[in-house]
Amino acid sequence: MENDNRNTERITDLSYLGTICDGDQAFKREMIETFLNNTPSLINDMKLNLIEAEWKKIGDIAHKMKPSFTFMGIQTAKELILRIERQGRHLENTSEIHQMVFQLESICNEAFVELKEELDSL
């Protein structure tokens, strides 16, 4: 019961990655490590582009991030990333993008903690 509660509160869901790995823990570890190494710099790039109001570049980075979030099962970020991608690339409601990027960073920070825990358990 306690375990179920913990699952519903988690941001990441590695069941899809687990299906792909099919028991290959080394590959699972590699995927998580690569995500942890790669994503912070992408978030940082987004933030730097916010300063320059380079909305299209922000949209492109969001597009690039999208598939790796699928592997980590970060569902709460999925809609957010899609909005950043669309609004950035089409220059729609750009005033909202600033807030969305920081919201994404916050979700990612929570996800990183969970993923590091996952790595420790592997």
Binding site: I20, D24, F27, T34, N37, K64, P67, S68
Partner: peptide, 13 residues
């Protein structure tokens, strides 16, 4: 593929 995460995935599959 320029996304390191996706590259790992493609290499694996």
């Amino acid at each position: 593929e320029d996304d390191p995460v996706y590259l790992k995935f493609l290499q694996y599959v």
